[in-house]
Structures are given as C-alpha cells and as structure tokens.
Amino acid sequence: MAAGGDHGSPDSYRSPLASRYASPEMCFVFSDRYKFRTWRQLWLWLAEAEQTLGLPITDEQIQEMKSNLENIDFKMAAEEEKRLRHDVMAHVHTFGHCCPKAAGIIHLGATSCYVGDNTDLIILRNALDLLLPKLARVISRLADFAKERASLPTLGFTHFQPAQLTTVGKRCCLWIQDLCMDLQNLKRVRDDLRFRGVKGTTGTQASFLQLFEGDDHKVEQLDKMVTEKAGFKRAFIITGQTYTRKVDIEVLSVLASLGASVHKICTDIRLLANLKEMEEPFEKQQIGSSAMPYKRNPMRSERCCSLARHLMTLVMDPLQTASVQWFERTLDDSANRRICLAEAFLTADTILNTLQNISEGLVVYPKVIERRIRQELPFMATENIIMAMVKAGGSRQDCHEKIRVLSQQAASVVKQEGGDNDLIERIQVDAYFSPIHSQLDHLLDPSSFTGRASQQVQRFLEEEVYPLLKPYESVMKVKAELCL
C-alpha cells in the first residue's frame, strides 16, 4: 500500500493539533497551500530580480507567473513527485505547466533550498508574528487579574506546605514575570531571523556568478533584492546548502521555554482548584465526569500541561538535527523538520489560546482563602504575639514557653481530632496574655502579614508589564474561544 493518505478522510490519521486544537490561522501558515504558494512567490521574486539585473526574462513571463501564483494543481504535483521522487522539481514542473512561456526560467540558477529553506524562514517569521500578540493578550488578562487582587491576602506555599502570606495578585505576578520573559525572547528570536537568500547549491553562489558572467556586484544585488522582497532586513552571508540548523534550535528553545512557563502556571491553577481557592472557567453544560456528576475538573489547565510537556520535548529534535548536518548538509534534517517545526508552533498556539481562555474567566473564592488563612495564621502570628507581650512588660522566655504549650495543644486538636485551630481562643482565655487581649485582632490582621506584596504588584505592572504590552494595544480586544 502506498504511503500517505487522504487526510480529510475519517479513515486516515490526522494530527489532533490540526484537527482538534490549533487555530485556523496557525494551521494555514503550515498548510501545503501556504507552503507551495510561497515557493511560487519566491520563484517570481527571483525572476523579477534577475530581470532587473539584466537576464533575458520578459515582462510577459513575469506576468504569467504572477497570474498563476494561486493556480496550484495539487493532484498534478503529487503525481509528479511520485514520478520524480523530488518535491521541488515536482512543483517546478507543475508551475511550468500553467506558465508555459515562463517554464524555462522558473528556478533559474537556484537549488531546492532556495524555495525550501527560504519558505521555512518566512513561515517561522509569520508563525512567530501570530504567537506574539496571543502571548501579549494572556499577559494582559493576567495583569488585569493581578491588579484587581493585588491586596487580597492568601496563604503562600513553599514545598506545598503553608508559608508566609502573600497576595493573590502577587502570586499571579510570578506567572506574568515568566511570560514577559517569554514574550521578550519570542520577539528577540523573531527579529534575529535572517533570510537564507540566493546562495546556490553549497552556499557559494557559483551558479549565479556564472549567470551574471562573473559580476560579483550583481550577485550581491540579486541576494539583497530577493531578501528585501521577502520582507527581511538581512540575509546570511555564510550558508551551506541550507541555512544553519542552529536557527531551528533557537526558535524551538524559546517555544519550549514558553511551554515550561505555561505548565507551571496551569499546575498552580490545578492545585488551587483542589484547594477550592480558584477555578478555571466551567461552562453551564460542561460535564466533569461521566460517573461523578459533582466533579469540576480543571480540564483546560490539564490540557495545557499535557501539550506543554510535548512542546518542551520537541527542542531535542533540532538539537540532534543540527549535530548531524555533515559538511554542507545531509538530508537527516528533512523529514524531522517537516514534523517538529509545525508541531512546535501548533502546540504553542494551542496552549496560548487555551491559557487566554482560562485567564479571561478565572474565578476566585475569597471566603475559602480566608478560612485557610484562619487555619494557619495563628501559628504564624506567634512571633508577633511574643513581641507584643514583651512590649507590655512580659518575659520573652516565659511567653515563648506559654505559646509553645498552647500551640501544641491547638495542633493536637487540628491533627488528632480534625478540629479547627483554636490557638487564639486559648490565648484569649489565658490570664497571662490579658495585657494584649485587646491587640489580638490587630495582630491577626492578614494584611499585616503580606509585606509589600501589593506595592510590588503595582510597581511591576507599571514599570515592566504595561510598557512591554504597549506595541500590542491594537490587538488586545480579541477574545479566545474554545470549541473543545
């Protein structure tokens, strides 16, 4: 049975990233139509530049190519590739079939990587351009969430054990800070992308030097003109047959890092959902379990974690691919890159769409948070109580021993009897502590235990987050809708 299948058929496997999760716009960027249309555009740009620099290419040939950029006979191309065992030459023939007058000058002087690699770089750039505003929107939604809850005390956790208090907004800023680093890295790697350009079979530009009869300047002009037509500021000066596969490492490393950030955020949300302090959106008709109707599973956060793990592992592909590119190139890269580049971007696209949807509907339960604080705060307040007693004339050592005994009794009630923490009640009825009984409410005010959390939130948002989001103001209103 021949390899390949009808990918629109229910009898043929289709990647869930495309069929179930990723956005239509990201799927289109990695589609065959987008790819092969870009090949034709690159052939047109090459012909236009070659004509401008004096090669015998007519206006009629150029116009014929322009008129057929979208006229792609995919069936013919597939048949040609089956016959020739070469995808680029299959599309040269297919393009030439609908451009008979231009057929002889299509791909003039070029090698397969002229269309293959340059198209990949265009796709990487455009895919990054799709991700950047999506990530900015996630940051914006979380920034709104953090600002609104900047002063809401909550129990902090280290080692997932109760620690000092923080605020809900401050905790959210930990998430935002990681995503801001990801946004900066995505922008950097996007701006650092260079075009492969017009380089020939081993990167020496020998074929173009021959076409222009040894004119170095025209060869350099050709490279520059096509690079500018493709919208790049610069091209690699040095290439082998391909652009260095280190570029793929750079791009997928940034995406993998984004995956790590999203995994951490969504894990926190899942843990908070278990504590009943916070939940992701839950639709009115949504079913959490087929057997347990009360369940409210954090399905979206779980999906993000599941896909983020996949995204983090994909960076190993370009690392290994770059390491086995012998001399000017081997074909070890080809099949692998067809999979890992598309999957990385479709996965990143999915987790950003999902995280935006989550961040637009996060639900906080202040009463649950308050109750958990009441359970733990008495123990945390013991040092403040000791200091207040010393100020009232008591002995630190005597007070410490009193607190120690009462704390152990209260802990026994919590752990052995399943009761509430009654340390404060014990202190309130103990005559030894009568000098500070009137101060206990103040000493137990949760806001006095959150330090500068709310001020940190305000400063972080104003100095770091809002300036970073400013270039994306025009796209901030787009909502994230999930079908599944």
Rank of each mutant, 00 (worst) to 15 (best):
D6Y: 10
D11M: 11
D11K: 09
S12P: 07
P16C: 13
S19V: 05
R20Q: 05
Y21G: 10
Y21L: 01
F28I: 07
F28M: 13
F28Y: 13
F30E: 02
F30K: 01
F30T: 07
Y34T: 03
K35S: 06
K35Y: 06
R37Y: 15
Q41G: 06
Q41N: 14
Q41Y: 14
L44I: 08
L46H: 05
A47C: 06
A47V: 08
E48G: 05
E48I: 08
L55D: 04
T58I: 09
Q61E: 10
I62T: 09
I62N: 07
Q63D: 05
K66W: 13
K66F: 08
S67G: 11
E70A: 12
F74Y: 10
A78L: 09
E80I: 15
E81H: 04
K82G: 14
R83V: 11
H86M: 01
D87Q: 04
V88E: 01
M89I: 04
A90L: 00
H93I: 08
T94Y: 08
G96T: 13
C99S: 08
P100H: 08
A103S: 11
I105E: 06
Y114W: 14
G116C: 13
N118F: 00
T119W: 03
T119N: 04
L121E: 09
I122A: 03
I122D: 00
L124K: 13
L124G: 06
R125I: 05
A127V: 06
D129P: 00
L135K: 07
A136K: 10
L142M: 14
E148W: 07
E148H: 10
T154P: 01
T154S: 12
T154Q: 10
T154K: 02
F157K: 08
F157T: 03
T158R: 00
F160T: 02
Q161E: 04
P162N: 06
Q164G: 02
Q164F: 07
T166R: 00
V168P: 05
K170N: 03
C172E: 03
C173D: 05
L174I: 12
L174W: 12
Q177V: 14
L179E: 01
L183A: 10
D192M: 09
L193Y: 07
L193K: 03
L193A: 11
F195P: 05
F195T: 06
T201I: 03
T202N: 09
T204V: 10
Q210N: 14
D216A: 10
K218E: 06
K218Q: 11
K218P: 12
E220L: 10
E220W: 12
E220H: 11
E220I: 12
Q221E: 13
L222W: 01
L222N: 02
D223E: 11
K224G: 10
K224D: 15
K224E: 11
M225G: 06
T227A: 15
G231A: 11
G231R: 10
K233V: 12
K233W: 08
I237H: 10
I237E: 09
I237R: 10
G240C: 06
Q241Y: 00
Q241C: 02
Q241V: 01
E250A: 12
S253N: 13
V254R: 11
V254D: 09
S257L: 07
S257V: 07
L258C: 10
A260R: 04
A260G: 12
H263L: 05
K264A: 08
K264N: 01
C266E: 06
D268R: 00
D268Q: 06
I269T: 09
L271T: 06
L271G: 06
L272W: 09
E277M: 07
E280H: 00
F282V: 07
Q286G: 02
I287G: 01
M292F: 04
M292I: 02
K295G: 00
R296D: 03
P298C: 12
E302I: 01
C304M: 15
C305S: 12
S306A: 08
R309E: 02
H310W: 07
H310G: 08
L311G: 03
L311D: 01
L314E: 06
M316S: 13
D317M: 08
P318G: 09
Q320F: 11
A322I: 14
S323N: 05
V324K: 04
V324S: 11
Q325Y: 03
W326C: 06
F327P: 02
F327Y: 12
E328N: 01
E328P: 03
D333V: 02
D333N: 01
R338Q: 03
R338Y: 02
E343S: 10
A344G: 15
T347M: 09
D349V: 06
T350P: 07
T350C: 12
T350R: 05
I351E: 04
N353T: 08
N353W: 06
N353F: 05
L362T: 10
V363P: 06
Y365W: 15
P366M: 03
P366S: 06
V368S: 05
I369P: 04
E370V: 08
E370Y: 12
R374F: 07
Q375Y: 06
L377Q: 00
A381P: 02
T382K: 03
E383Y: 05
N384K: 06
I385C: 08
M387Y: 07
A388N: 03
M389Y: 06
S395R: 07
R396Y: 06
D398Q: 14
C399W: 06
H400R: 03
E401A: 15
I403A: 05
L406P: 03
Q409D: 09
V414W: 05
G419P: 02
D420H: 01
N421Y: 07
N421M: 09
I424N: 08
E425A: 13
R426V: 05
Q428H: 14
V429K: 09
F433N: 04
F433T: 07
S434Y: 10
I436F: 04
H437A: 12
H437F: 06
S438W: 08
D441S: 08
L443Q: 02
S447G: 13
S447K: 14
R452S: 14
A453D: 05
A453R: 04
A453T: 11
V457M: 04
V457N: 04
E462Y: 13
E463S: 10
E463D: 12
V465E: 02
L468C: 15
P471G: 15
P471V: 15
V475Q: 14
K477S: 11
K477A: 11
E481H: 15
E481F: 08
L482H: 06
L484Y: 15
